[in-house]
Write a protein that binds this DNA or RNA. Structure first.
Length: 493
RNA sequence: GGCAUCGUGGCCGAGUGGCUAGGCACAGCUCUGCAAAAGCUUGUACAGCGGUUCGAAUCCGCUCGAUGCCUCCA
């Protein structure tokens, strides 16, 4: 039997503001769309947190046995830099600055994006479509919206008529805004001459002669508006109504609001059953964003090459750090927080190694099945990874007690404990065991074992100068010796 | 200015009415030749002020503070 039949998930739906029981449209199947990156610069750590949250959610669905189609797009066109009326495409701007073809920019940063995600041990999405690959679909949606009377053309650009839409639908329901308030609070912007109302947004923009990224359309050469690509690609691959749409909190308005409007205008019904929004990663208490310069690149964490860091941190440590906070909470990055996570992560990994070596007994005094269900309960409650990790540490404590022969465990319970831990730590949380070069590791282990033996000999002879020298110098190299009842073991950090 | 969210012990961070979250750090003890590792013990925190309640970190109001969105952004 599939796990999902027993484990029932509640998720916080941004649209209703409540936790709701997840009921997929088709039993056993989940369709999920997440807004991907705009590939005009290196992906920063804040971006990674959002994608990591949805990677964890994707992993948990798969763990439960769901068949998931996970679509995460690449925005490689259509993102305007300035106000829509005199905007320039973000990709095209970067291309001009760097004297590159737009697609050269796209290629460079798409590769960077994939490299970073791979280091973080992300699972690839089922489909990773690009905006430029779906111009035709986008044009078709615009035609449909025009036909239904929710759009209008001005000088070769098409805009969405928000006021008209709001007569029959509710624009602003996702972000808790009312159109009247938005109108009352609109800032005075330069000439909005092409739009009927400032709230209207572009579905298609006319391309000026100097504009490099351009496609033909029934309204002349141009390029699609930013919000449209997600509607086009999610509809194409997941259908007019699908289960889950995710993205960063900052996309709630206007991007996701506009997606809802486009889909409702064109299809006549709501596109998404559950809206999920991942919260921001801050640094020094401020949002991380490319535009403000307050950001850190993943590569800088892996090398320690940033002024806020005292050392380098591995991708798994960063992942563990992020998983210790709930995805809907703001998380603040600091060197101290990373150091604390690193210690905890190593302790968890050590316990896992220890468990493999535990000799089983006739009885257990640890109710593994109760603990196991508590782990699922944590994840079923809106993917509460901090609670899950607390449960993992409950197990760590038990394992260390087993090591000390204070508690006992049966062979069957040991297997359940081990497989559950591995399932959550590696499959769901996506953490990785430190992978050492195997051949080097074998040789190194032999050398360390030899030194441990020499140290033991020295200690037996009460030659503590020699024994301490071995211990301290190994420690200085990052090899820690641990004296236990069953002899000495070591770990390499 | 408008709309949201949030304010938890030294640090990070769970927790929506009564029952020990967890991690890191710190202290004491056990173990140890001394350490480390591991185990045990200790911390009575919920921005402030009022209110509801037998009882509130948790509900309501106000104040203060922080952040996000309102313009590209995960």
């Amino acid at each position: 039997m599939q796990l999902y039949k027993k484990q029932h998930i509640k998720i916080y739906n941004s649209l209703s503001g409540k936790k709701e029981r997840l009921k997929p449209i088709n039993e056993g199947h989940i369709g999920m769309y997440v807004c991907g990156p705009t590939v005009y610069s290196n992906v920063h750590l804040g971006n990674c947190r959002t994608f990591m949250s949805f990677d964890m959610i994707f992993r948990y669905f798969k763990h439960l046995g769901y068949k998931v189609r996970y679509v995460r797009n690449i925005t490689d066109a259509g993102h305007l830099v300035d106000d829509a009326d005199d905007g320039e495409d973000k990709i095209a701007k970067k291309a001009r600055l760097e004297q590159l073809e737009p697609m050269e920019v796209v290629q460079r940063y798409t590769i960077d994006f994939h490299n970073i995600l791979q280091k973080f041990n992300f699972l690839p999405p089922s489909i990773e479509p690009t905006a430029t690959g779906h111009i035709i679909e986008q044009i078709e949606i615009i035609k449909d919206i025009l036909k239904k009377g929710f759009g209008y053309e001005t000088n070769g650009s098409i805009y969405f008529d928000v006021a008209k839409f709001n007569e029959t639908n509710e624009y602003g329901k996702l972000s808790g805004r009312k159109l009247e308030d938005m109108i009352a609070n609109t800032r005075e912007l330069a000439a909005q001459n092409e739009k009927k109302n400032p709230q209207d947004f572009a579905l298609w923009k006319r391309a000026e002669p100097e504009h490099i990224m351009r496609w033909p359309s029934p309204w002349g050469d141009g390029f699609p508006g930013w919000h449209l690509e997600c509607t086009a690609m999610s509809t194409k691959y997941l259908g007019e109504t699908f289960d889950i749409h995710g993205g960063g909190m900052d996309l709630k308005f206007p991007h996701h609001e506009c997606e809802i409007a486009q889909a409702e205008a064109s299809n006549g019904h709501s596109p998404v059953n559950y809206w999920l929004h991942a919260n921001m990663l801050t640094m020094n208490g401020k949002k991380m964003a490319k535009s403000t310069g307050n950001n850190i690149l993943p590569g800088e964490i892996f090398t320690g090459d940033n002024e806020i860091l005292s050392k380098a941190f591995s991708p798994s440590v960063v992942r563990f750090f992020m998983m210790q906070a709930h995805y809907t909470s703001i998380l603040d990055l600091s060197n101290d927080a990373l150091l604390a996570s690193e210690k905890g992560y190593y302790r968890l990994m050590e316990a896992l190694k220890t468990l493999k070596k535990i000799e089983p007994n006739e009885t257990s005094n640890f109710d593994v099945s109760v603990w196991r269900q508590e782990c699922y309960d944590a994840m079923n409650d809106d993917f509460n990874t901090p609670i899950l990790i607390a449960k993992m540490f409950d197990a760590v404590k038990r394992i260390n007690l087993l090591k000390e022969n204070i508690e006992t465990i049966t062979s069957a319970d040991k297997e359940t404990l081990l497989s559950t831990l591995k399932g959550f730590i590696f499959d769901v949380l996506g953490l990785e065991e430190k992978i050492e070069n195997v051949s080097n590791s074998d040789k190194l282990s032999g050398v360390v074992e030899l030194l441990i033996q020499l140290r033991k000999d020295a200690r037996d002879n009460r030659d503590f100068d020699t024994s301490d020298k071995i211990r301290d110098q190994l420690s200085a190299m990052g090899i820690q010796l641990k004296d236990g009842k069953e002899g000495t073991t070591f770990s390499i950090s």
